[in-house]
Write a protein that binds this DNA or RNA. Structure first.
Lengths: 143, 143
DNA sequence: CTAAACCCTCCCCTCGACTGGAGAGTCAAG
DNA sequence: CTTGACTCTCCAGTCGAGGGGAGGGTTTAG
């Protein structure tokens, strides 16, 4: 058994982080010494490594917590994890596509903007690089 | 001159949002009526449209505030905006590439995970879909 | 005159994953 | 016995872009 500091050192993380995982249920409540110190076994190290790997591929602590809970219930979380991984990959595809569209729009604005003269910019619309002349219209987002 | 509610309606945004922009300096401090009501002219509408357009391509309110400040100083912000736009496009390229790498990794994990049997998963490492067997090692991020 | 509809300021809350610090108890070495 | 390293809990704050609501003034239509 090791104290939280030793575990943090071996896992390459911080004491604060481990306490936080304890608090939010990513790690099971630690065993405690007589004086109240958290005590961890080797298993905690494997769990922290899992958290790291899972975070690295974009899983949230909430999702990771669910996985850990399954494991704690004696159930192999593999199927659940596989679904998470596939869903996250799909979400990333969408996200990447959306960012790509924004980037394309930025490139268009930049290309057009390089041809514009600042002297032609109408102060009423702040900057014609972002708001092309003649784009004014009533918006309707809250009504 | 219109009150904040009328402006919000015309701009398709909320009163809260306009007050917030006022507070953080995205909009210049509004003129006030005798009773303290904010009063806006048509210019504010153009400014709100600019904010919307700029946000839509990923500029932050902090950046937008700088642009507005230039405009308020009587300077055409076009060159600054063009730089922001180009820089943001470059950042998005990096971001998209990074997300693509994560997605690729997820696809790899999923493909491999589909071939794994949950019964072979070592509970000590939570789930072998994310942490392939034999990946254990000491990490060193904080020390 | 009164009620509805506006408007004001001020403060707290949201989300995620922590980080920092105060104040206090514990443990190991010299 | 003391000192310093370690640990505990609890509170607060971070970042961005607002949202919710209390408590109180203002304006306008009937």
């Amino acid at each position: 058994m090791m104290t939280i500091g030793a575990l943090a050192e071996r896992a390459g993380t911080s004491i604060k982080t481990i306490r936080y995982y304890d608090e939010v249920g990513v790690l099971a409540p630690a065993q405690r010494s007589d004086s109240g110190y958290r005590l961890y076994d080797e298993g905690a190290l494997g769990q922290l490594r899992f958290v790291r790997a899972a975070q690295a591929v974009g899983l949230s602590l909430g999702e990771i917590r669910q996985v850990m809970a399954l494991r704690r219930q004696g159930e192999a979380p593999c199927r659940f994890v596989l679904e998470l991984v596939e869903r996250r990959a799909d979400e990333l595809d969408e996200r990447i596509a959306a960012l790509g569209r924004v980037r394309d729009e930025l490139r268009r604005l930049a290309a057009r903007g390089r041809l514009l003269d600042a002297r032609d910019c109408d102060p009423d619309f702040v900057c014609h690089v972002v708001v092309p002349a003649g784009t004014a219209r009533e918006e309707r987002r809250h009504g």
